[in-house]
Design a protein around this nucleic acid. Structure first.
Lengths: 116, 116
DNA sequence: GTTATCTTAAACCATATGGTTGAACATAAT
DNA sequence: ATTATGTTCAACCATATGGTTTAAGATAAC
């Protein structure tokens, strides 16, 4: 559902718009961490860090498992792939190599590296 | 400068976290538009749409040229490329094909498609 | 010079955000 | 049962956001 996809992208990009949350993802990319572990490098209260983790969770970027009193968090990269899919829709605009390839396909004789 | 890069990424992802602004970028990907043209498809005031365009501009995603009383906007895809660079840092986590390739490189004899 | 058009600024509003502190909840250790 | 640990909730605060309306500014058309 298009509307649903927009909402998800909203949340993902929103979650990524803060360097604390990006740093948390970078750590989670290396493996599972507890909430306390994720919070510890940041100079903010545990409650603030907990809020950030919840924002990541709402975006689907983090999944948590509770075992006893410990909350374990893991990265879920699929929403990142979808965000990347969206960005790659613009790849043609930033990748001049693709532009040149398209140009070559249209006018093959214009290739300066072609000695013909 | 690392800090500067973070700020820029904040702004880019922030700008992308709204479907109105993403829709504006999609139109700009097809070519230059005036502010009024960008605003017209949306059911919001011109002032509101103007604010969105300013958010895109602050993120560096849009460049504007003023000719007379008309403001022309163009997409600048470079910040999208940088956002994509950041996302691609996680490619290994979402692309299981890369995972399998790495696994093959480590244990070549485990390839089930290899009849050896 | 006057009117029209394009666009933003200012003020306002409701909501969201990102942080704090202290309390509360859930579970583990003793 | 009590204390300790891990974590979230609630209330608060300052700021930001996304929208509105109206006014203002810049330029073009007449």
């Amino acid at each position: 559902m298009v509307e649903h996809n927009h909402t998800r992208l909203d949340l993902v990009f929103r979650a990524l718009s803060d360097q604390t949350r990006r740093a948390m993802l970078e750590r989670l990319a290396k493996g599972e961490h507890t909430v306390g572990e994720l919070a510890s490098p940041f100079r903010m209260s545990l409650a603030a860090a907990s809020k950030h983790i919840q924002t990541l969770q709402r975006a689907g970027l983090v999944k948590r498992t509770v075992r006893g009193r410990i909350h374990y968090c893991r990265i879920d990269p699929r929403p990142l792939a979808r965000a990347d899919d969206w960005l790659r829709g613009y790849e043609r605009l930033w990748d001049t190599r693709i532009e040149r390839l398209v140009e070559l396909l249209r006018h093959p004789d214009n290739d300066p590296s072609n000695p013909r």
